[in-house]
Design a protein around this nucleic acid. Sequence first.
DNA 1: ATCGTTCTGAAGATATTGTTTCAGAAAGGA
DNA 2: TCCTTTCTGAAACAATATCTTCAGAACGAT
Lengths: 293, 293
Amino acid sequence: MTKQNDQNLTVSQRIQNCFDELTRAERQLANAILDNYPVSGLGSITALADASGVSTPTVARMARKLGFGGFPQMQQTLRGELEATISNPISKHERWAENAPDTHILNQFAETVIENLRQTLKQQDPKDFDAMVKVLADRARVIHVVGGRISHSLASYFYTHLQMMRSDVLQVERNSNSWPHYVLNMKKGDVLVLFDVRRYEHDLLRFAKMAVARGVELVLFTDQWGSPVAKFAKHKIYSRIEAPSAWDSSVVTMFILEAVIAAVQNETWDETNERMTELEELFEKTKLFKKFV
Amino acid sequence: MTKQNDQNLTVSQRIQNCFDELTRAERQLANAILDNYPVSGLGSITALADASGVSTPTVARMARKLGFGGFPQMQQTLRGELEATISNPISKHERWAENAPDTHILNQFAETVIENLRQTLKQQDPKDFDAMVKVLADRARVIHVVGGRISHSLASYFYTHLQMMRSDVLQVERNSNSWPHYVLNMKKGDVLVLFDVRRYEHDLLRFAKMAVARGVELVLFTDQWGSPVAKFAKHKIYSRIEAPSAWDSSVVTMFILEAVIAAVQNETWDETNERMTELEELFEKTKLFKKFV
DNA sequence: ATCGTTCTGAAGATATTGTTTCAGAAAGGA
DNA sequence: TCCTTTCTGAAACAATATCTTCAGAACGAT
């Protein structure tokens, strides 16, 4: 065995380097490994031995011969290689803010947020998304929007936009004491859009239950762990909120919100368009009005 | 568990299908698996449990819950998936939301937003960023926060977080009629954090001018074209707000806000930490209080 | 053919992994 | 608040996987 193999070589490279010193059974094994590399090496030693038509001791011996402590160590290396291959589809190590070191908070944040987005979208079924948009675009339904302590701003952002696009959108006020009164105004078929992230709020859960009891359909925006409200929600979005900070990140939630808004706009283009034009006019008038005050 | 899962579904799909029925620890585990999928699931059950921060029985139980006979069977499935993935020669242009066409709004939005982020950070000088953070972390200054019609939610989000970290943070109310009164309470050295994006609001400009006249330092969050307020602002961030929609995207602005928050937190860790602890206690008390009401 | 050397895999020994049990913790409901 | 139900992980147990040993097979040299 060439003693160069010790460090940082892939299994495949080691096999090639040592190939001359391998015995008949070992070569057979080596070929089997390379044949379906590296997946073939990820099962048990027995499975690999069987697949190659050799005995398990042969496999164990070869692992040693290639410079590993044993079969499990070789397997570990294979997993490592695989991870490096898989998790690096595009320029992963791109620096976002040039002129700043990798460790600058801007770059760290960018890394994390992109990863959050990637994961969130991967887990999101577009069909569910579309179904949810359809409900929100349904003019026959009244939409109520409510948020928790932190997520209140998101709720407000969503409300502001949705309300520009369609009628019958209501924002539930922040103070949870008054929530029962809001429930009174909800009827079967209404939609309650609810924001609840880590530090899930009990009041929100209670509110949600009351609403559901009245036949309201729940649309929930929550984090990757899922608010307890999720059980009652017909449509829900789980966003990743990881951040290199003591707080959570709302960037991905904001992203989804905007995508929902854009999609609702597409669904309701006629009404939206009309409303926006009217809105323009109203703003114009307000402006004039103010001038004279 | 929906009994549709039985055949031919990937582990990832099964997790998504069952996600609602998963318990807390199981969700934690599920996230860990999806996080570095599928490699994370290829080691021993112990390794996976440790990496996820749960116990091995939890892993075994979840494997069952997902419809497998046990952990090894689930692992087998993972290997199978991997083989299928790897042996697929076409390294396709990565799609954000798999299972949806490139033209789906989610994918289009992702493309655009990432590009926005890239451009914004490229253009942003980290030194300016740091300088701005320093001002916001300066305890000797009082911070006032104000937003426009659309950007009000962003202002509110920023306020909520900043106010958890340091004292002397004030939110200026939405109604611009009262703004002159707010100016009266500002003094030289105070900071006014102002949000103004496309459809720049005249009231905001007037407000900014008044503040500057009193010796207030302006911190401005605006879009790539720059609000007219920029002329008077000492520190400013230009975020790209392009979106495949009739509205603009606030995702990047939100991103910057959170980065600023994280950076301020680093600067003021002592006070922040203390305040957060106090806050916890207050919330606890409120909870108790509410119970008796 | 015979001998010495090297290689190989069956079988058993050992180590590790996976499963089950169960008591305490946490969550949910009245 | 108390009670019930559900969840969770430590520990014991069971099942595999890995390694070691060793007798015999294969090979090569004479």
